[in-house]
Nucleic acid binder design. Sequence first.
RNA 1: GUGGCCGUAGCUCAAUUGGUAGAGCUUCUCGUUGUGGUCGAGAAGGUUGAGGGUUCGAGCCCCUUCGGUCACCCCA
Length: 439
Amino acid sequence: MATKKNKLKIQCPLGMSDILPEDQPFFKKIYKVASDFSVGFRFGELSPPILEYSELFEKGTGTDTEIVEKQMYSLRTKGGDHLTLRPEFTPSLVRSYIENGMISLPQPVKLFSYGPVFRHERPQAGRFRQFHQLNLEVFGSNKPIIDIELIYIFYNILQNLGIKDTIIEINSIGDSQCRSDYKKLLVKYLKKNENFLCSNCKRRYKKSPLRVLDCKQERCQQVVSGAPQTIDHLCKGCHNHFKKVLEFLDELDLPYNLNPYLARGLDYYTKTVFEIVAQGKMDSPVGNDKNSSGGKKALIGGGRYDDLIRIFSRKDIPACGGAAGVERIIEAMKEREVKVSTTNKPVIFLAQLGDVAKIRALELMNDLRKANIPTAESLDKDSLTAQLKIANRLGVKNTLIIGEEEAKDNMLIIRNMKSGKQTLVKMEKVIKEIKKKLK
RNA sequence: GUGGCCGUAGCUCAAUUGGUAGAGCUUCUCGUUGUGGUCGAGAAGGUUGAGGGUUCGAGCCCCUUCGGUCACCCCA
């Protein structure tokens, strides 16, 4: 009993949207390609819950990140638990790896995940509050080849999906040791040039100086261009690791750009960080700065996180991973006019007249489904005219017609839509006949 | 969180200087209650995003708000 005339808002929450039937093939295709790769390279698929204890992300993703500071969808349950809709996969996978004792499996352990993630931020082109990621993680190896395996797989997934013009942006931000040395150096430098920084960077450079490196403000870029670079201040171990990574990239002939200003926003990264960016056309009028990713949004991002697992388990287990933005990939596919096969385009239309025929038609639909013959129908329509009209519009080659007479005799008519020729066949021979005609 | 642009039918858009909203496409019905493509007839669909104000009168002018979109921030 509505006392007030509150109108129900018929709309999706901001930044979220329905995936309509016509877009499903894109999602299916991407999932299929990604899961083929993951099977081929022996990644096990793991689906963590969409909700986790908030603490997991606070500790894992890091309290200093934008994501944890202001983008989490958090809630308190009736039981008093603090839960959060996952804003990314990595912490969940780390949790699952530890919780399920994968530490005692042969290492490395390779995992693949796919599903929705949630971030409460202002939506814009290629950015949503609910979007889908496909995620690859490798636990238990510190070898550079693992970094490369991930990049190689991600790169090839995109190639496979028809996005050929990609470039790998790559950098190394060192381990906890050499990074903190570098940070001190950088802060010192930034402090000297504080007056030239934008207001945002002025505020944050002491706390997270790496952020300044990929600030898009021109004035900051100026300052940054003279700043010390991470790669010049790596310790021997990190240096050798990164050198190997670059050698492998050369060896594989992958297009990459050593981008000394690539920092990335998550606290847990160490050593290698990377993004894969689609080149696209240069049609965006503003923001063609060369150092950053050029205003184009990354399709894939990831890196190594050798220190993250220790936060949760006290064990020292190196890891590396990455995530691809499914909606962004779809957008790129559409820009490049990549066609995805609509698997269920009907080749047959099934028309009927009268109640008995409707029942026969319903059963025949099931037989056709079993025989893998995509068939359309309009059981709700009574007139043959209307049904043939639809059949015609769908462009099917043949229409099956079950009339009242035919239904009684267990027969039906196969009508060739082009020639108009009709043949009468027995119900139990239809599938065979159809298959013959479809050849 | 900050800023630019935009809100008329399911979609694409009209509506002279403010005079109580119209077309195309789509959908549905009919043109012999057993035969499609073209064609014809008709129907459905809007408190012009919402709320206020100015006016005899507002889709149009003013204010507020909501929504959409793009950009910044940040990120997939």
